[in-house]
Computed example of a mutant assay.
Amino acid sequence: MGYQSTLEREAWSDLLVEYEDRLRLPGQPRRAGWLSAELVDYLWVSTLGYMNSLATLIDSAAAAVAWDGTEHITRAVLDEILLEEHVQSGRPARLALLDRKQYDFTADTDA
């Protein structure tokens, strides 16, 4: 999924709302926007908008927090999940740019 236009960003956020509504972890806050607002940019930069990478990231994070008993997905948990090579390559650098508010969402990402 793209993320350059307002319409594309809204579609990405709407998709994350669906994940929020369906993910059931006892320790996860049932607060609207924990993915679709708080982690919206992070999730796109981490996955470059690839649906399979997003599913891998969220599913693996849910399994990890169920396994360790915390049952609460945080950015720290998401950071530990390895993704497919084509998105994992460069992910730390992209996230560092995002954290410094220097990530260019208008750049061609092939997503």
Results as ranks from 00 to 15, higher is better:
residue 1 M to H: 02
residue 3 Y to F: 14
residue 3 Y to A: 02
residue 4 Q to K: 13
residue 4 Q to T: 14
residue 5 S to M: 04
residue 6 T to D: 06
residue 7 L to R: 08
residue 9 R to Q: 15
residue 9 R to N: 02
residue 12 W to T: 00
residue 12 W to M: 00
residue 13 S to G: 05
residue 14 D to R: 10
residue 15 L to F: 00
residue 16 L to H: 01
residue 17 V to F: 00
residue 20 E to P: 06
residue 21 D to R: 13
residue 22 R to Q: 11
residue 23 L to N: 01
residue 24 R to Q: 13
residue 24 R to C: 06
residue 25 L to N: 07
residue 25 L to D: 06
residue 27 G to R: 10
residue 31 R to Q: 15
residue 32 A to N: 08
residue 32 A to H: 13
residue 32 A to Q: 11
residue 32 A to M: 11
residue 34 W to F: 12
residue 34 W to L: 11
residue 35 L to Y: 09
residue 35 L to T: 06
residue 37 A to F: 07
residue 37 A to W: 12
residue 38 E to K: 08
residue 38 E to Q: 14
residue 40 V to K: 15
residue 41 D to Y: 11
residue 42 Y to C: 00
residue 42 Y to H: 12
residue 47 T to S: 05
residue 47 T to G: 00
residue 47 T to N: 06
residue 52 N to F: 04
residue 52 N to H: 11
residue 53 S to G: 10
residue 53 S to V: 06
residue 56 T to C: 09
residue 56 T to Y: 04
residue 56 T to E: 14
residue 59 D to R: 13
residue 61 A to I: 01
residue 61 A to C: 07
residue 62 A to N: 07
residue 69 G to M: 06
residue 71 E to F: 12
residue 73 I to Y: 02
residue 73 I to L: 10
residue 74 T to R: 10
residue 75 R to V: 09
residue 75 R to F: 05
residue 78 L to N: 09
residue 80 E to S: 15
residue 80 E to N: 14
residue 80 E to L: 04
residue 81 I to D: 05
residue 81 I to V: 15
residue 81 I to R: 02
residue 81 I to A: 02
residue 82 L to Q: 15
residue 84 E to M: 14
residue 85 E to G: 04
residue 87 V to C: 09
residue 88 Q to N: 15
residue 89 S to D: 13
residue 90 G to C: 07
residue 90 G to Y: 03
residue 90 G to A: 09
residue 92 P to S: 11
residue 95 L to Y: 04
residue 95 L to K: 02
residue 95 L to G: 03
residue 95 L to M: 14
residue 96 A to G: 06
residue 105 F to M: 02
residue 108 D to A: 08
residue 110 D to T: 06
residue 111 A to E: 13
